[in-house]
């Protein structure tokens, strides 16, 4: 077995450290080492988006990032979306719009949609579809997901106005 590397990073605003083999993905480290299983594995090759997190503000598929690359970075996972005990407007909108069925893709969608609304508070339908095109959902046909993001965007703009 390979010897492990000590990684210091920030996850969901808190300093964290872990040991990982150089070949381990960030996804594996989050799930198996840190117990952050909200980030899901659907394909392990960057095509489904279930493992989407942000790293230094950038949307990445954590299966294509090595654990060692997280050193010094700021990582946000689905566990970091809620505002304390209150749900984030996106989370609430997903529930109110029935934008999830099985829910396995939901963490990735929430992270990607959150990054979208931080970058573009008023995206039109096509912009939302473009931003979410790397996140596969097999249950919903995306309709209710798009509506949920639109609702959350409206609410967040209202709150910031």
């Amino acid at each position: 077995m390979q010897s492990k590397v000590h990684v210091q990073t920030t996850i969901n605003g808190e300093p964290r450290e872990f040991l990982c083999e150089p070949r381990q993905s960030l996804l594996e480290c989050l799930r198996d080492t840190l117990g952050l299983t909200g980030t899901k594995e659907g394909c392990n090759d960057g095509n489904c988006g279930a493992c989407t997190v942000t790293m230094d503000g950038r949307v990445v598929t954590s299966c294509l990032v090595l654990g060692v690359e997280a050193a010094g970075a700021e990582v946000t996972t689905v566990e970091g979306i809620a505002r304390g005990s209150a749900l984030h407007p996106l989370q609430r909108a997903f529930l109110e719009n029935a934008a999830l069925q099985c829910g396995i893709c939901t963490p990735g969608f929430l992270v990607a949609a959150n990054a979208l609304l931080e970058a573009e508070p008023d995206p039109d339908e096509q912009r939302i579809r473009l931003w979410l095109a790397n996140n596969l959902c097999r249950c919903t046909g995306y309709d209710k997901i798009i509506r949920a993001v639109q609702q959350a965007a409206r609410e967040m703009r209202g709150a910031n106005a």
Partner: peptide
């Protein structure tokens, strides 16, 4: 009617435990 699902909070916060978790 259209109530919010009972397992909703777990599934939007990443707390729900799927088989692989």
């Amino acid at each position: 009617t259209r109530p919010v699902r009972h397992d909703g909070a777990d599934k939007v916060t990443g707390r729900a435990i799927y088989g692989g978790d």
